[in-house]
Amino acid sequence: MKARGRPLPPQRPATPPTLRQRLTAANRRCTPYLYISPFFLLFLITGLFPLLFTGWVAVHRWDLIMGQGEFVGLDNFRRVLGSPDFWKSTRNTFSIFLLSSVPQVILAITIAALLNFNLRGRTFWRMGVLLPYVVAPVAVVLIFSNLFADRFGVINSLLDLVGIAPVRWHSEVLPSHLAIATMVNFRWTGYNTLIFLAAMQAIPRDLYEAAAVDGANRVRQFFSVTVPMLRPTIIFVVITSTIGGLQIFDEPRLYDQYGRGGADGQWRTLTIHLYELGWTQSDFGRASAVAVLLFLLIVAIGLVNFTITRRIATAGGHR
């Protein structure tokens, strides 16, 4: 090829990169992975390995003292699914989860909307809603166990003042679930309130000003502006509440002095059932099978939430 009738000068061969240049390029490629590697190493040790090992134990006859026994395949799962205690625990888990998570989200959004106003001492009120979260679960359960005591309880005393018969909070199924759900709501409502409050403060004020110009009052602005803008945060809170609600253990475990979920399993959850199989009956095979089934249940509900999330996000994008 010629340029203006003159041949181009011969090109010099590319010089190979020096060792320092190679090390610099490798450093740029590997440094991001080194930064995130501690998380994956910890997850491998404390998350993935226990999960895989639980699946291994679930297909063996495993004793607390003797250790690994013979391979039994899916026999542990058949025994668990054929046990009435498992289905009763599943019912109790979903009942307590629904009684706690649904009111919790509604209360958290409402309190966050009130705290989003220009209140006097708003920092004090915002930090105050977080105090129940930092209280030890044991202290919370001890207080609420006395409040919901079957005899001489504060709640029954208040009900007696208005002519309502005392409720057997530790004997009947639904009252015990309501009492435990109240403890969960007391501890976690403030935590979720701060999450919603942070999301509300990120909403542009121009939207509220435009709604006010159109004649919308505060209630109308809340349902027409605030709630739609909080859609991703609501989905996040619902998913985390679902995972935590299905793994509830502390509150039902400490609700009475025996820690077995009631005399007839009135409030025995799946985690308590798992604990009883593993440490009381020393049957780690069935306990691991319950753990695997609980994991699959959480994954299934997570997939449902993910599907709903995508549909909501798609519907919001077409508006």
Rank of each mutant, 00 (worst) to 15 (best):
T233Y: 02
L178I: 15
G163D: 12
A25S: 12
S145R: 11
L297R: 00
C30P: 02
A26I: 11
T24C: 01
V237Y: 10
F196C: 13
A136Y: 01
I36Y: 04
R122Y: 07
P132W: 07
W125H: 13
R310T: 02
N116D: 13
D160A: 03
A58M: 07
W125C: 04
G82K: 03
G244K: 05
P17Y: 07
T242Y: 06
S157F: 13
F43A: 12
A202H: 13
L48K: 06
S95W: 06
L41C: 01
G5V: 09
T110R: 08
G316S: 15
R286G: 03
V173H: 06
L230C: 08
R126K: 13
R218S: 11
L303T: 05
Q257C: 02
D206I: 02
I235V: 12
L131Y: 09
Q281L: 12
V129L: 03
F43P: 06
S89C: 01
L48V: 15
D85L: 13
T93D: 04
V134M: 06
M183Q: 08
L23P: 05
T182S: 15
R220M: 09
R319C: 10
I65G: 02
I155G: 04
G285T: 03
Y191S: 09
T110L: 15
P10F: 00
L293K: 04
I248H: 05
A211L: 12
V154E: 09
V290G: 06
H318R: 15
W188E: 10
R187Q: 15
M66R: 13
L197P: 03
V72Q: 01
Q257L: 15
E172W: 10
P175N: 03
F249T: 10
G47Y: 13
G302Q: 05
N156C: 03
T182N: 07
V59Q: 12
D75T: 10
G5I: 00
L51R: 02
Y35Q: 01
W279P: 00
A198N: 08
Y208V: 14
Q68I: 14
Y255K: 04
N116T: 13
F152T: 05
R168G: 01
N118L: 12
W87S: 03
L194F: 11
P50R: 14
Y133M: 15
R78I: 04
L197H: 07
D256Y: 09
H60K: 11
V184H: 10
G265N: 13
V102E: 07
